[in-house]
């Protein structure tokens, strides 16, 4: 098993993801420079957080045209597991691999801190280690995290179980007060129709070891390994 972490100019959580996969999961992983044109040999891909291309124009809009993204799109279309974190989420929406878009935080502040999240759906294989209704705690660090999508798109996503995580309080109440960035319906994480492409604004790589104050993010990584070891997803 080998995981690829796509590295764009301005990615800054690439080594954190590499550390979690290698040191915590004991799984092989490499960084894939954005100029690569193929992702052959990888069983899952991670688009890490950061500020690719300085967030110029719109967050993720330039990275979306990096040479590697054509291969990432083909990989995703073939059913390959793709995880987007923070800037990776922004890139995946810009690339059209996930619906909607991420706008400037409603409070116009960069938000950095711990949030609570309620698991709304475990449709994605990345969520196989969680249960619907579970409340988890993960850190966020972003300026452009306000998720938005057309009402029709949102309805379809809701019906299809594609809304995976919502910001909530410690008791699991999804309220405006618990919304750090103005995301519509407190949305923090979503997946595509098939579930193989999953992205979230919080950082599961920053809460995958007890030393970091929470291991609530570890399940995302373990679920990825579980999916790759149990059922071969790729045709």
């Amino acid at each position: 098993m080998r995981i690829g972490i796509v590295q764009f100019p301005g990615s800054n959580c690439d080594y954190d993801c590499l550390h979690v996969i290698r040191a915590v999961l004991q799984v092989q992983a490499d960084l894939i420079w954005h100029e690569e044109t193929q992702v052959t040999g990888y069983d899952a891909l991670v688009l890490p957080g950061g500020f690719s291309y300085g967030d110029y124009l719109r967050s993720g809009s330039i990275a979306r045209f990096s040479p590697v993204m054509r291969a990432v799109t083909e990989f995703a279309d073939d059913g390959g597991l793709v995880l987007g974190i923070c800037n990776g989420f922004q890139i995946l929406t810009e690339a059209g691999l996930l619906p909607g878009a991420l706008l400037r935080n409603s409070a116009l502040e960069f938000r950095c801190g711990w949030v609570h999240l309620r698991v709304e759906s475990v449709k994605s294989p990345f969520m196989a280690t969680y249960e619907t209704g579970q409340v988890v705690r993960m850190p966020i660090a972003h300026g452009d995290g306000s998720y938005v999508a057309d009402p029709a798109v949102l309805n379809r996503m809701r019906d299809n179980g594609q809304i995976i995580l919502r910001y909530c309080d410690a008791e699991g109440d999804v309220s405006a007060a618990a919304n750090p960035n103005g995301s519509i319906e407190n949305i923090a994480g979503i997946c595509n129709e098939n579930g193989n492409v999953f992205a979230l604004m919080p950082h599961p790589e920053r809460c995958a070891e007890p030393e970091l104050g929470s291991v609530d993010g570890l399940g995302v990584w373990q679920a990825m390994v579980l999916a790759l070891t149990s059922v071969p997803l790729r045709v």
């Binding site: 400037r104 409603s106 409070a107 116009l108 306000s146």
Partner: peptide, 11 residues
């Protein structure tokens, strides 16, 4: 017009 513009609101 349907998209909130917090920067516009702040201005």
């Amino acid at each position: 017009s349907t998209v909130l513009d917090p920067q516009g609101n702040a201005i």
